[in-house]
């Protein structure tokens, strides 16, 4: 119940990217695809062209790997949310 409330809150704040748009623009260099899963999971498989920013290291890694703060980013985790 509380988990549901928290998820609803997140949904209201974060804009979504649809599967169609992502599939269409997956090779588009202006869209950066970010995998927030653990490195082990990333090595096993990730979306084409995605970079790995594990949630645990995100605050340190993100400024190094993505210096441009206005970079268009699509984020995904493991299972459908």
């Amino acid at each position: 119940m509380m988990g549901f409330m928290a998820t609803a809150e997140v949904e209201a704040e974060i804009p979504q990217i649809s599967h169609e748009e992502l599939a269409r623009r997956i090779a588009d260099p202006s869209l950066l695809v970010v995998d927030v899963l653990a490195p082990e999971s990333f090595q096993n498989g990730h979306l084409p062209g995605a970079i790995n920013l594990p949630l645990a290291d995100l605050p340190q890694l993100a400024p190094q790997l993505v210096p441009n703060r206005s970079q268009e980013i699509a984020v995904y985790c493991g299972s459908p949310t």
Binding site: P59, R69, I73
Partner: peptide, 13 residues
């Protein structure tokens, strides 16, 4: 962290 143009792909991997 200051990234303004972030969108979430809900399907995930």
């Amino acid at each position: 962290l200051g990234y303004a143009n972030v969108r979430h792909y809900r399907g995930g991997l």
